[in-house]
Amino acid sequence: MKAAGVKEAELQAQFDDAGQQERASALGMWIFLATEVLFFGVLFVGYTVYRLAYPEAFVWGSGHLDLRLGTLNTAVLLGSSYLVALGALTASGKGTSRRARLFFGAAALLGCLFLAVKGMEWYHVWEEGLFPGRGSSSNSFQEGAEGGRLFFGFYYVMTGLHALHVLIGVCVLAVMAGVGGPLGWRRRIGNRTAWELAGLYWHFVDIVWLFLFPLLYLIERSGG
């Protein structure tokens, strides 16, 4: 890895040189992402266990989700990832630049769009009475086989946890794009590594969704 990205002034006291600092930061982020894999992984394991146990209920539950909105959201996240990758590439050429900030800002907006669509979807499902928690009427689950509640339990927890990650990501991207400028945050995040790390995190959030999408929305859509 080239060591050009860090100016001497940004070198932290514990490091010998910029190359070491960049390598350490990147490694830290990758290890963090590995922990995130297992964090979400638990939900995927639980999902697998119950889908094997209650296949019909999962078909039934999936049928109640809006496939168009889900597909739209997947495309939105992919687009934002693309923009973030462009932004990181631009930043690595010249350090912080106006164009890089624009790319990140646009990606953050797409992130917001994703959350808005997600919110709409939750509202729809809620309206149908398909909220598995306390206080909901259990009637809506009667037509679904045993396990319908479990499907929607996973639906809410998985998408909820993912949405939380999107929200954090949007904040990070927005700060990088300059929203935090008045607070003086931009000075600290001037180096290339910061752009790359923010990008890594965002791509990871994207990847999680890439798996959530077929598991939740695309269960035997052939029947109608």
Binding site: L27, W30, L33, A34, T35, V37, G41, F44, V45
Partner: peptide, 9 residues
């Protein structure tokens, strides 16, 4: 690290 996450899962 990337591999480890996947393999442990």
């Amino acid at each position: 690290a990337a591999w480890a996450g996947g393999v442990w899962l």
